[in-house]
Design a binder for these strands. Sequence first.
DNA 1: TCATCCGTTGACCGACCGGTCAACTACCGC
DNA 2: GCGGTAGTTGACCGGTCGGTCAACGGATGA
Lengths: 200, 200
Amino acid sequence: MGRTGDSRERIVRASARLLLSRSYGSVSVDDVCAAADVRKGSFYHFFPSKADLAKAVVDLHTDALLDRLAAAAGTSAAARLHGVADAVGAIQTRFESRFGRVVGCPFGNLAAELSTVDDTLRDHVASAFARWEREFAVICHRAHQDGALRDGVDPDRLAHSLLAHTQGRILLAKVGGHSAADVATGLHELIDVHLREGAV
Amino acid sequence: MGRTGDSRERIVRASARLLLSRSYGSVSVDDVCAAADVRKGSFYHFFPSKADLAKAVVDLHTDALLDRLAAAAGTSAAARLHGVADAVGAIQTRFESRFGRVVGCPFGNLAAELSTVDDTLRDHVASAFARWEREFAVICHRAHQDGALRDGVDPDRLAHSLLAHTQGRILLAKVGGHSAADVATGLHELIDVHLREGAV
DNA sequence: TCATCCGTTGACCGACCGGTCAACTACCGC
DNA sequence: GCGGTAGTTGACCGGTCGGTCAACGGATGA
């Protein structure tokens, strides 16, 4: 082994950073190798193609997100719902301070750019979204059982709606140059309008 | 003039089609020229760069969208609100039948891929979104004046929320392989929860 | 001690990228 | 008829792209 054997991890982390600050198409394998201080041959030792690297990056973000969502506390179901909005806001705020601006959602960025280009990658991102939505759905169902949801609000559909809203808000903040805090505020509003009057 | 002098238009229309079916990064200037049956020199006679072509495509879609939104009829303000959801659904359904799948929003796709890469392009797309949101806002304000909106719902914030939701739903449909009809349904639901009970 | 194997290196490749250019052509106003 | 000009053509360019490969090195286990 050359140095410490953490080359693969350095590659994934470096490309996660580069993909957020730019885009899949504008980040070359050479860029990634330079940022990770790894030679190209090593890169292709770990990843059969650039697309596979992107999948690894998706997995990295998926693990991080699911951890964060699980850690999001909250006593009542309604508070838990607001907790996920806070979690999303916290992640975006962290990206914002790291890159100096809202740079989008790691999943959403790849989904928008590559869904129509690489079908296996599309499928991979879709799975990540599905897991994310399932986490939301669990919380929505709990809120439903607690009677915190407005009449006629279906928990599964609310979960999907929440995810869509998250993606849309982040995208608009990215293109419009808004702040990550606005994203969180918008999500809180969306949640409130779905909660029964008088719920926390 | 070589043929009929409609080269520029052919270029824009061909690249509008290619950008929707693929992505900015995966569509080359050569691809566009081939699809438009135009030689590369002609392309660069009309557009100083590939990015400028993308701006022209944005303008094309902006005009089409604003026309469509203006044509969306509706007697009551609430019906008008649902009318914009139908308009979005109709556009997406048309794309779906043209390309065999949901291919995303022309603005959203470019916003996600290029906001962090090309600042002038980002600004151009942001302007298009701003005009779109303003159209939504006009209708939301009308609904507000008519007392159709739930208490505490701010019309401007609702317009932004509606736009975000539109983008998010389209993105999720694109990556998840859902239908354009689902997008419209989701938008109708979002509108309904913001309307006062008993409003049409 | 030695073979094995994972990781590493750097040179290399053909294709394709966005973009340029000088020459040519057909129209239009004069 | 003639000059100017908008449009067109095809050859051309340097750079970069994703990806390949043979050779090498150092730890590990027998």
